[in-house]
Design a protein around this nucleic acid. Structure first.
Length: 422
RNA sequence: GUGGAUGUAGCUCAGUUGGUUAGAGCACCAGAUUGUGGCUCUGGGGGUCGUGGGUUCGAGUCCCAUCUUCCACCCCA
């Protein structure tokens, strides 16, 4: 073999791809019911979109982006997430001039230069939604409910919804000051990362995984302690809506999302038993982002769901997928004259809307039957010299094992009727 | 980016202290049944032992490098 697929990418082959199609089908149906419109965005963007939109100090921008110069010497980046491109498209296409809010969904691959492991790949796939132009906490609750609805339609169980509010910039400033006061006396005992975070972004100390830092930070002031009255009211309202929807959650003051532009609501959905990469989706509000990207002050909120991790969880939990579909009918052909007739019949069957296949390898009838069985064909039409001469075909029901002879010119109608009936 | 494992047929794996022509099950193809799938039996095709170096009379086996995948960290979906 000349070469293999690049590290951290995967081929989704027949047998697997049906599962992806199923998830897409369920998600599109969900978006229709929640009234979100699809937007299709480029897979690469100008690098500065992510530098500004995601944040210079985030891990994504600092070390995970696929960035290259194109032939016109422009710096291009394979999109590592969907929110910044959606914001860009909202502004560039002046969607703010239409009815608000604008509710969008997207699907597709994202790229991050990470070291692969179970549930983490360099090209991975997300379903996401974004709502622009509404600050109402009912929208926060709607997008959370929508994400949870998606999981539940797939049959996933035992998921944990983590919820937090990181407040507005005013709350963040208060918290920052309080955190620095709290951690200053303990700095010597903390990890190097956290000593760096102390100046740059003390919020991030709260989700440090180092044991010593966790001990130190128990009792530290949290986001929730520092919310201003408006932010506290917003957070409470989100929780009230979730209560009405009977969606269980845990308030997790340590949930501090990695992207700089998040304000207010932050949430993440965790699945047990798929390893360390247990987050199967997450999102939050970003009321400052659109303005930061050069647009009018506009609130926004969204989430993204990780398809590879969802599939992994579904497989671990034994969730059901639609059964594999074979052709409605397989034409078994004996002899060359029959082959000519088979081509004509195939065309008629397909034009009638049936999924129809035949043999192309000159196999024996027995081998063709075996092949049809493997394809999971519902019916087999046997067409040989004998049938041809008498203008009939033999129609076999593969599941029942029964067969009958019918006039050739009644085959298409007869098959259509049978396939519709069951 | 850091640390630790892994790699033999399409898949799951065996392969002795380094020793002749690398095996099994499943899958695939064919025959038993010259026109009938699933069960059974028989036979067949398929491997540069991840890749590249090295040690040795001799390497699937030992050493080095590299790639992949997996596990953990960082971070996230």
């Amino acid at each position: 073999m000349l070469t293999t697929r690049p590290r951290g990418t995967s081929d989704i082959i027949p047998g697997q791809v049906e599962k992806w199609q199923y998830l897409e089908h369920v998600f599109r149906r969900l978006c229709r019911e929640y009234d979100y419109a699809e937007i299709r965005l480029p897979i690469f963007e100008h690098t500065e979109l992510f530098q500004r939109g995601v944040g210079e100090t985030t891990d994504i921008v600092e070390k995970e982006m696929y960035t290259f110069l194109d032939r016109g010497k422009r710096s291009i980046t394979l999109r590592p997430e969907g929110t910044a491109p959606a914001v860009r498209a909202y502004l560039e296409n002046r969607l703010y001039a239409g009815p608000q809010p604008v509710k969008l969904y997207y699907t597709g691959p994202m790229f991050r230069y990470d070291r692969p492991q179970a549930g983490r790949y360099r090209q991975f796939h997300q379903f996401g939604v974004e709502v622009f132009g509404a600050h109402d906490p009912a929208v926060d609750a709607e997008v959370i409910a929508m994400a949870m609805d998606f999981y539940s339609r797939l049959g996933l169980q035992g998921l944990e919804l983590h919820l937090n509010s990181v407040g507005c910039p005013g709350c963040r400033a208060v918290l920052r000051k309080k955190l620095q006061e709290f951690f200053r006396p303990h700095l010597d005992g903390m990890c190097a990362d956290c000593r760096g975070r102390f100046e740059r972004n003390p919020l991030r100390i709260l989700d440090c995984k180092v044991e010593r830092c966790r001990e130190v930070s128990t009792g530290a002031p949290t986001t929730v302690d520092c919310l201003c009255p408006d932010c506290a009211a917003h957070f409470q309202a989100v929780q009230d809506y979730l209560a009405v929807l009977a969606i269980p959650y845990v308030v997790d003051p340590r949930l501090v999302r990695g992207l700089d532009y998040y304000t207010h609501t932050a949430f993440e959905i965790m699945a047990a038993d798929i390893g360390a990469q247990s987050s199967i989706g997450g999102g939050g509000r970003y009321d400052g982002l659109i303005e930061a990207c050069g647009g009018p002050p506009t609130p926004g909120i969204g989430y993204a769901l990780g398809l590879e991790r969802i599939l992994l969880t579904m497989e671990r939990q034994g969730c059901a997928f639609p059964p594999p579909e074979g052709p409605d009918v397989f034409l078994a052909v004996a002899g060359e004259p029959a082959s000519l007739e088979a081509v004509r019949l195939l065309q008629q069957l397909r034009r009638a809307g049936l999924a129809a296949a035949r043999d192309y390898l000159g196999r024996s009838l027995k081998a063709q039957m075996k092949y049809a069985g493997k394809l999971n064909a519902r019916y087999v039409v046997i067409l040989g010299g004998d049938e041809l001469a008498r203008r009939v075909v033999t129609l076999k029901d593969m599941a029942a094992g029964t067969q009958e002879e019918i006039p050739a010119d009644r085959l298409v109608d007869g098959l259509c009727r049978r396939c519709r009936e069951s």
